[in-house]
Design a protein around this nucleic acid. Structure first.
Lengths: 222, 222
DNA sequence: ATAAGTATTATTGTCGACAATATTCACAAA
DNA sequence: TTTGTGAATATTGTCGACAATAATACTTAT
């Protein structure tokens, strides 16, 4: 299940999504320079389209542009990861708080159903949950905040870069089961409409998650 | 004193800044549609430049684009303002926390000096502080977080829209002196390296500020 | 051999024209 | 009058070419 259905209309949009995918998954290497002419032939579109896609990518924090020089894919670093997760903790904490205030009963039921479904697959294969399940859960909470700025910032500016770290550093990890329990507690707080607790639990959850990734990063440094 | 010196290089950058100014200050009306050809003649640049500027403006939350239809300046609304301040509270709270952890002693000294300077002008004319002083203070804290994502999000995605609300709803307000005291307390907490308190105080400060603006909004509804 | 300055090449920025899509207007039918 | 259909118009999306800037290679002098 894809949580948010992006429907690219223009070729610039499609190119943007292709480029983003290639960067996140590393087929365009971190730190490498983007040559507009090259990309133009590679994706079989005009340079104007490439430029528009690059402009859009700039917002996603996946690359940096310098005037008259060009665009470079970001480099992954420990400090970059920490900074990213600090922002995540801040924004998703607020999202959980707002979700406790603003989610409809119907939305809360759906999240509960989602967790029940996951509970099964957690026991069997831990793999599934970590990939799609975790993302799904966080999406629901963020959308449940009903705050357009919050949603846009996390979806567009944060999550793709988070995924880039996950993919390129090969995060899978044994944190699956404890993370699942944490998710349950967060939903519990939201069900109780306890804004304060929902925020605290979500912030802790993300802080734990960061520690986990950081530890992996010690083993396989950049 | 301008806190962050933007140095536009290309004509697209310059046009972007001009357009942003005109939108924030309302000479291009909120809710109005942007016609690329019109703007092209108005700013005396090609349509390509206008399009690049519009693309950049999309990130600032000052306008919305729809494929094959065009870009519209955002409309100001009470719920929009509340949502904006919720995000601000979240991000600037974290910024204050990180500032308490990461600011150099030198940076802290500079903020203290800044507040002392303001303390004089607060007694005389309240006007100055509310405009430049408040902005200056918040910039220092945000920059003091030493978190690039946080800085970028607030500077690029949030503050211009905040200013648009302020300008177009004519916020000046008698909150000057109490806000000044709040600023002092925040700096005190940062000086003490008390992350927890710095975050709490900043969040309260912004919540108060939001209430203040909301109240004004009751008097002059949109 | 090295350094500085200049010429050459490569790459990004800007432009005007054309294509594709959406909007508006006119007309006809109910 | 209102509604639906089609043509005409306006607007955005895409393209290739040229201009401006940066990166590279070459030459020359010390």
């Amino acid at each position: 299940m894809t949580p948010l259905t992006e429907t690219p209309i223009t070729t610039a949009d499609k190119t943007f999504i292709s480029l983003r995918k290639d960067i996140v998954e590393g087929s365009i290497a971190a730190g490498s320079k983007l040559n507009e002419a090259e990309l133009s032939t590679k994706y079989a579109v005009s340079r104007a389209v490439i430029r528009e896609a690059i402009n859009k990518l700039e917002n996603t924090n996946l690359l940096e542009r310098k005037a008259n020089v060009g665009a470079k894919v970001v480099t992954l670093s420990q400090s970059g990861l920490i900074q990213l997760y600090q922002v995540r903790e801040s924004l998703e904490g607020m999202a959980a708080r707002l979700a406790a205030a603003n989610m409809t009963n119907n939305e809360i039921d759906q999240v509960n159903t989602l967790l029940q479904q996951h509970s099964g697959s957690v026991k069997e294969s831990q793999r599934y949950y970590q990939e799609a399940g975790d993302v799904d859960f966080h999406y629901r909470i963020v959308l449940g905040s009903h705050n357009q700025h919050l949603i846009s910032m996390l979806m567009n500016n944060i999550y793709h870069l988070v995924r880039m770290y996950r993919v390129q550093l090969g995060m899978a990890g044994p944190r699956v089961t404890t993370a699942f329990a944490e998710h349950q507690h967060i939903v519990q707080a939201i069900s109780n409409r306890d804004q304060e607790l929902a925020e605290i639990l979500m912030r802790r959850h993300i802080a734990y998650s960061r520690n986990n990734i950081e530890q992996k990063l010690q083993d396989t440094p950049l």
